[in-house]
Amino acid sequence: MLTLDKLTKHFKQVKAVQEVSFTVSGGEIFGLLGANGAGKTTTLRLLATMLTPTGGTATIEGIDLLKQPDLVRSRIGLLFGGDAGLYDRLTARENIVYFARLCGRTEEDAHRRAVELAQAFNFSEYLDMHAKKLSKGTRQKVALARSVVHDPSVMLFDEPMVGLDVTSRKDVEDFMQDLKTRGKTIILSDHNLNITERLCDRIGILHKGVLTAVGTLEQLCREHQCSNLEEVFFKLAGRSEE
């Protein structure tokens, strides 16, 4: 379970995240929607302990990220979209093993996990190929494998499908559904309203750092008298620069 309690982040005069509070349970996918600059990525970075909150806090399985950031990091998996963020001069196997080792796994265990994950994500034949030679889809699969190499209980996805073709998107979607089935706590930040509608159990809408609404799709549509998520989004987050 993940709980945000009045989580706040200011960058000098900019109030990036303002007293954001919500809870995500195990086996739930929580969608975080918002226009560019709404505070989605900042919220995820706060949860990943890359940033220190200006106010408030968050707990992951009861562990406070302010008090035990190292322990929080060991429970979190993070996946960014766009470029997969792999080390090009390392092989797929070496990329996965490196992160496994940095998450506390032994050398032997890390290699075993790399083989397991390559089989699970169907890229075993590319395991010893340098990352720079991999296709974009395979790179994203390797990044997925890397993000779960330490079997985290909470997964944070920041626009994970950007730039992926239909097949690769399906792989990511299936992966998220699989994590959900296994009881993982998931936050998905994405601009694509269709994907959010399809995958997320509940949705939170951020606007200028403020969480303006939280609920299931039905709840949001009913509360705001809209027929679909797009209408809700434009009503709450407004059009750009509105």
């Binding site: 890359m50 979190i76 470029d83 080390y87 992160f99 998450c103």
Partner: peptide
């Protein structure tokens, strides 16, 4: 630039 720093900062390494 290659965006490998952020995943690195999220590992157990201080």
């Amino acid at each position: 630039e290659r965006r490998t720093f952020e995943p690195l900062l999220c590992t157990g390494a201080r």
